[in-house]
């Protein structure tokens, strides 16, 4: 089979941008697991909220980027409320417990979204229609912007965790939460902070992805399985692993659909199963201490 190199080129860019979205979503899930040992499916809810808020603010003000900022803020706020009201009470329990609870939150949240925005899918206008010429291929600039945002977020998260004392404390708590607690550090606050960062990033992901899809209440569920795969392949609790696996899955989905569309949706699962067979904790999964 011969492939048009221009198609391949645009497909690679497409894969990078969708990988960027996966990364923004998966990083929160991964950090929350690493630190609090919870599986926070409700991140997908903040993703939907981010997209809807971006839509509404965009319609009201005509300002797309203002909408994205508001979407990220809304994701952060919603996650703050959820952490305070619900997750606080279940940190001590088994991870699967949090998985069920967060699934309930995701579902209930979808209900709320339906209540507020209705079930009709909403289009969000692409902020820039500019194209960009790479080796004779027209690449939409907006896709590159998404990739750029993902890269910046990665850098910021990295700097936060490696260069600030709070970030270092978070890493220390991922290593051993009891030792951090024993020093008289308020790990509850570290938990809240991490959860809110995750929620805001999910909101951001929803906002920036909104122009490329139709914003509808079920968008979170559609994304769920892919984010899962990214997190599993990367290994729960690893930032680098999450980034690498988001990159891989993005390319598999986009290049795969170039080769044989129906298989593209499935290929990531096959990869995931294969990786789990070789390494049951994912590519970069942290060795977990029992709590």
């Amino acid at each position: 089979m011969s492939l048009d190199p221009r198609l391949v080129m645009s497909s690679v860019i497409f894969g990078l941008s969708i990988g960027g979205i996966y990364f923004l979503l998966a990083i929160g899930l991964s950090l929350c697991f690493g630190l609090m040992r919870i599986i926070s499916l409700d991140q997908l809810l903040y993703y939907s909220i981010g997209a809807f808020v971006t839509y509404s603010v965009g319609v009201a003000t005509g300002q797309f980027w203002l909408g994205v900022a508001a979407g990220a803020a809304a994701g952060g706020l919603a996650s703050l409320a959820v952490e305070r009201l619900i997750f606080r009470r279940i940190y001590a329990r088994d991870p699967t417990f949090s998985m069920i609870t967060s699934f309930g939150l995701l579902f209930g949240g979808i209900g709320i979204i339906k209540f507020v925005w209705g079930v009709v899918p909403r289009p969000v206008e692409v902020p820039t229609l500019a194209q960009f010429d790479v080796l004779g291929t027209q690449i939409p600039v907006y896709r590159l912007i998404i990739v750029g945002i993902a890269v910046v977020v990665y850098a910021l998260i990295w700097a936060f965790l490696h260069r600030t004392i709070v970030g270092k404390a978070i890493r220390a708590a991922i290593e051993n939460v009891e030792h951090v607690e024993g020093l008289g550090i308020n790990v509850g606050r570290l938990f809240t902070l991490t959860f809110v960062i995750a929620g805001a990033l999910s909101g951001l992901a929803g906002g920036v992805y909104a122009p490329l899809i139709l914003v509808d209440p079920m968008m979170g569920l559609e994304m769920l399985a892919f984010v899962f795969m990214v997190v599993i392949i990367g290994g729960l609790g690893s930032i680098k692993g999450t980034a690498i696996s988001a990159l891989i899955i993005g390319q598999v989905v986009s290049l795969g659909s170039l080769i044989y569309a129906p298989a593209a949706q499935m290929a990531p699962f096959v990869i995931m199963l294969a990786i789990l067979l070789i390494r049951p904790t994912g590519l970069f999964g942290v060795a977990l201490t029992r709590r």
């Binding site: 004392i165 270092k168 404390a169 890493r171 220390a172 290593e175 051993n176 030792h179 020093l183 550090i185």
Partner: peptide, 12 residues
Amino acid sequence: FAHMSVADNIAI
């Protein structure tokens, strides 16, 4: 904490 210098460990 393995990823922190001695000073950071003490100062955290």
